[in-house]
Every structure is written in structure tokens, then in C-alpha cells.
Design a binder for these strands. Structure first.
Lengths: 130, 130, 130, 130
DNA sequence: GTGGTCTAGACCACG
DNA sequence: GTGGTCTAGACCACC
């Protein structure tokens, strides 16, 4: 499970953590019944404050994606995969829609927008391979 | 010149105003030497506090897009079109990159991402035509 | 009498006009009893609003540098030369003091400050010749 | 780190704060990675409204001199020293140029100008030593 | 606790 | 009328 956060991003860190757990469940990396890394471990790995991770975990349980097992950690629920796949799609679609909506209001020619998308798509995929 | 802001957006209002003026100059809607709508007028139109618009205008002059003419208003500079076209591209590219980056980390299959982009592109174009 | 104003300067236009008249009297360009160019003429020459020139002229009469002759214009008073020479010195000294004071608080090495002064002195003199 | 502002100055308070932080970084008083005093602390020390200090801090992050760490404060960036040294030079040079430019248009003999500069330089250095 | 944004209304200088 | 600055105090997200 590759976790990393960008502290300088406008997206809050706890949301980045939240989204990444959701994405991990949606893709099957985290299986039902499996334990999510502990707050302390994850905080250490991401070099962020434990409170921040705890915040994300609280949201996870609110969403029904994971339940906390006293003394053991957070366990992925049975409903999680369906929930997370739906949510993943929503998140990604919303972000893309937002970006393209702004591109439209900028009156940047459609050709230029499409070119930018292709460039960034290649860039992102290239990075993923590297 | 259609200006509108979304108070609920995570993007600050003053940045939305800033971006829209930049877009207007980049697209030629606002010409060199022309006066930008006054703080008070724009504030009334957008139903936000004049200070918020003033904040955006101050940034405009810092960026060299407009100069304030005492007692007259803000005038679009000669360098503005070039500056704004470059900046518009940066803004749009940054948003697209952000969205696609998240899509990539979601491990959503590349095909699905591309399909989402095409859907949203069609939506936006359809709206523009309609 | 070379008059020019910099609209983008932080120094108000009316103060620039005021200072230049004072400097002209101090240097003898404008003699006692001579008529100062009219508000309209000066406004046209400087491409500024007549009100702005009028503002400067009002200050001139308040300072005792010139008196308005109904239907004729502003006339340089007998006390003007002495007043203006003193004031010129005050203005220039104050500005230089201010600039060097800031240089000191910046902790820029004294050598660098002196070098900057020399560079700018050469620059200004060079321009004056050109 | 001695901070002080002059409310009566034509230079806005937030710009004075901005310049002083830049000077502190340029001179090495504020080191890379170090935390800048908090908005509220600095506001109390300078006896100005926190918003005014916040305004200056926002500019700092826009300039890339410091990054805001959510809930922790503003941290001096790695690029800050170079940025600030360059900017310090610009600020000081601009003020000196402005002063000498006015001195030149005053037609005060070059000798007198140079004498004024030397007097003020001596004053400032004397103070620094004393 | 931290910084960031917004509303509100004051005052100023300039034209 | 214009833009610019400041104070004041609210609310928010984050740590």
C-alpha cells in the first residue's frame, strides 16, 4: 500500500489519508477483515501528526468503511469494498469535472484543453511506471 | 463579461475573482487600456463584500496585469494579455494535473479515467454550445 | 521648466507637481513676480486631471510661495525663493535620510549600501545628461 | 529579532512587516527551517491588528519565502535566503533611487547631494556603533 | 494553539 | 466617484 501525502497541497492531509485508504479498499489492496495500519505506524510513515491520521480514521468509521477493534486496530468491514468503489468513482469524477469546468470558463480553446489533459495523463502514467 | 463566484467552493472567493479577470484578459474580453469594473460595482454584482474584491484587485496590480489609476479605477496594462494567457494555462493545467494525479493514485483503470474525461469534456462542450 | 509626473509612483501626483514648482523657484527658473503656468495648461502638458494641478496650486498659496491674481493666474511671491530653497533642502534631505535608514535596518553591509548609492548616483546623473 | 513598525509612515504596515521578515532572513537572523513568530504574537508585539500581520504572512508564502504548516506556523523555506537577499537589495536600491531621483530633479548641485548622502551615512553608521 | 478567509465598517488620498 | 489600508471580530480547517 503506497501512502504518501503532500503537505503543501490545498487538499487537507487527513483527506489525502482518507482518500488513499478508500482507494486501497476499492482496488482490493486492503481486504475485508484485514487490519488497517495503526495510527502510530501510519503517522510515523507519513511523517505527520498522529492526530491527523486519527482524524482520517474517525471518518473511516463514520463512513462504515472500517470499525475499530479495541486493542487491535481498525478492521475493514464487509460493506467497505462496495462503498469505496462507489466513493472512489465519485471523488475522481468530481475532481475531473471541476477541473474541466474551470477550463471551460477560462475560454481556453477546446484543443488546448485536450492537449493539456493528454500531457498530464502521460505525465502521471509515466511517473506511475517510474 | 460574466462573473460569478461559488462561495461554497474550497477555492477562496478572491482567487476566483482573480482567475476570472485573468481569464477575461486572456480571452480578449478585457482589452489593453480598458477599465476593469470597479470594486464596488463588482462586489455588488457578485454579492460579496467590497474588501474581498479589493483583495483580488490588489493582487492584479502586484501581478502587473492592471495598474490602479488614482480616483479612476484599474486599467489593463500592455503586458497583461501575454501574462494572462500564460497564467491561464498554468491555472488550468494545475487543476487538471491535480485531478488526474488523484485519479492515478486511485488505481482506477486508465481506461476508466479516460472515459470520465471524455464524458466531462462532452458535457462541457455541450453546455457551451447550448 | 521641465515638468513630468510618474502616475505609478507612490508619491501623489499633486505632491510631485508641488515639489517641481518649488524646485523651479529654488533654482531660479521661476523668478519673483513671474506667472506660473495656468492650471489648464499644466494639466494638459502633464496629462493629468486639472483638479490635481489645482490641488497643488492651492498648497502653493498656502505655503506663501505664490498668490493667485484674479483673472491672471498665480504669481511668485517675493518670499518664495528663500522659502523654496529651505524647503527643497528639507525634502531632499528627508528622502535620503529615510532611504539610508531603511538600508541600515536591513543590515545590508555598509559597503553594499555605498555601492548602491554610487550606482544610482551615476545612473541619475547619466540620465540628466542624456 | 527586533521588529517595529511606524504607523505614521506612508509605507503600509503590512509592507513594513514583510520587509522586516525579509531582512531578517537575508541577514541570517531567521534560519532555514526555523519558525517565524506567530501572527498573534507578532501582532501583540507590534500593537497592530492580527489581520495586518496575517496579510504580510500571506505575501511571504506567495513569495516562496515561507510555507505555512497547518496548525504549526510559518516555516522558512530552503530558497528563502537567496530570495530574500535579492529582494532586500531590490528594496534598498529602489528607495535609494527614488530619493536620488528627487534630489536630481531638485537641481540641487550634485556636490550638495553627495554631501547630504555622506552626512546621513555617517549618522546611520554612528548610531549603529553607538 | 496555528494560519486563512470573510464580512463589516471606518478612514484616507486621489481625481 | 475611485482604490488602499486598517481595525474588529467572526468562522473555519488543521495540528
Amino acid at each position: 500500500m503506497l501512502f504518501d501525502v503532500q503537505p503543501s497541497s490545498p487538499i487537507p492531509i487527513y483527506e489525502q489519508v482518507l482518500a488513499q485508504v478508500i482507494f486501497a479498499v476499492a482496488s482490493g489492496e486492503l481486504q475485508v477483515g484485514e487490519m488497517i495500519p495503526s495510527v502510530r505506524e501510519l503517522a510515523a510513515r507519513l511523517m505527520v501528526h498522529p492526530n491527523t491520521v486519527a482524524h482520517a480514521f474517525k471518518r473511516l468509521s463514520e463512513l462504515g468503511v472500517a470499525v475499530s477493534r479495541h486493542g487491535k486496530g481498525m478492521e475493514v468491514t464487509a460493506e467497505a469494498p462496495a462503498l469505496c468503489r462507489a466513493r472512489r468513482q465519485d471523488i475522481v469524477r468530481a475532481r475531473i469535472r471541476e477541473a474541466l469546468r474551470e477550463a471551460a470558463t477560462s475560454q481556453l480553446p477546446a484543443e488546448d484543453v485536450r492537449r493539456l489533459v493528454e500531457e498530464e495523463l502521460a505525465r502521471v502514467n509515466g511517473k506511475a511506471k517510474g
